[in-house]
Design a protein around this nucleic acid. Structure first.
Lengths: 211, 211
DNA sequence: CGAGTACCGTAACGTACGGTACGGTACACC
DNA sequence: GGTGTACCGTACCGTACGTTACGGTACTCG
């Protein structure tokens, strides 16, 4: 959906309300906050579902991709890329916006005909997977990594990075990791991933190359 | 809260509706499904919040604990316990009931004064942590595991087991793992955990004993 | 300058739903 | 048999909110 600047402001207002109140804002609240008429909301977005969908889409779309070195991939560069991925991802999912969006999407994901979960999924875990798997494959090509199934490898990396952080935040456990903790965790996760899938280590996980 | 059998039936009806509709059921719907009067609902549970809280509590409380061998802990027994833990946990979180409960709790977790998130948290990740950490500590005592911070070790285990499974299910990605996949993943996660924290391996994660 | 367009502000409508009230029934206890 | 208790079924009330309608204003275009 193509957005004018004014429409973007309206969606920003909707997002702000979502973060403040913790639940999907009402049409009245959005109209008031954005200083626009409800008629305009309906004209632009079709209704409540359209407004919320557009709000989620606007935010989800601006999760930025990280540049991946596709030439001259050595162990150092691969490690650095993985750490950068992990740090970027942790920052995203622990952010207030991401938590609010995921809450909204999850809350409506069980209901017939709601597409919010799909949007967040496509721009969240699946987007991460789509960007990371090529990097992992390149690492294997370069003889730095050793795994059979790149999807499986991605999921292990995801687990090492995210752990129980996201589900705890979603459930309202207030303790957000600090920037320093995020950095440390990113380094740690990348190191653990290398310990499991680095080509210069033994296949201690018992499943290497056959799962 | 002490429950009579009839009250349990009412909460079962509420849970059934929650799973069917994907969102918190209305008082009318619960009364009709359970063949009871709304007045009774209010008398028993105080109101809508009380009813939903009781529903979540009833389910959350019956996540069963696994027996932990506290004597004669050898490598085999520890591995078996970890696999059992992983399998049990994966079965729980991929179950329809758990997904519905988590959706409900997360959807209301951002709202002032709602306690559902806390309940699920206490009976979910925190309960798992409370049961697993003693096992890990025992493994360290027995010279089988090597880690500095047992909470950190728990979280790595959690990540290796759960990966992105839970968040994908919550967001509506329909693909549930089969029983065979759960078994395989449990074994794999335990092996990977040993590869990272087993006392007979090198400390390849770079953080052993100092984080 | 007149017509059209886009938008704001506000009022109004319909409905869903949480909560309450009340009559009716079955059963226990004196 | 009379009284109290617990519960069902249903009707009712108030409010919140999605949606629609409409009058008023500014700006554009011919």
């Amino acid at each position: 959906m193509e957005l004018t600047e004014r429409q973007g402001e309206v969606l920003d207002a909707a997002l702000a309300l979502l973060k403040e109140k913790g639940e999907a804002p009402t049409m009245n609240a959005v109209a008031e906050r954005a200083s626009c008429s409800k008629e305009t909301l309906y004209k632009w977005f079709g209704g409540r579902d359209g407004l919320l969908t557009a709000t989620v889409q606007r935010q989800a779309a601006q999760v930025r991709a990280l540049p991946v070195p596709d030439r001259g991939l050595d162990a150092e560069a691969l490690q650095a890329s993985l750490v950068a991925f992990a740090r970027n991802w942790l920052r995203t999912i622990t952010g207030e916006t991401s938590v609010a969006l995921n809450r909204l999407a999850i809350g409506e994901a069980g209901i017939e005909g709601r597409g919010l979960g799909r949007i967040v999924l496509d721009n969240g875990p699946r987007a991460m997977q789509g960007r990371l798997e090529p990097l992992l494959a390149a690492g294997r090509e370069a003889g730095l990594l050793d795994f059979a199934d790149s999807e499986d490898a991605f999921r292990v990396f995801f687990g090492l990075v995210v752990r129980d952080t996201q589900i705890r935040l979603l459930l309202g456990d207030g303790e957000r990791p600090t920037e320093a903790e995020i950095d440390s965790r990113a380094v740690q996760a990348a190191a653990q991933f290398f310990a499991l899938f680095g080509a210069d280590h033994r296949g201690a996980d018992g499943r290497r190359r056959n799962t």
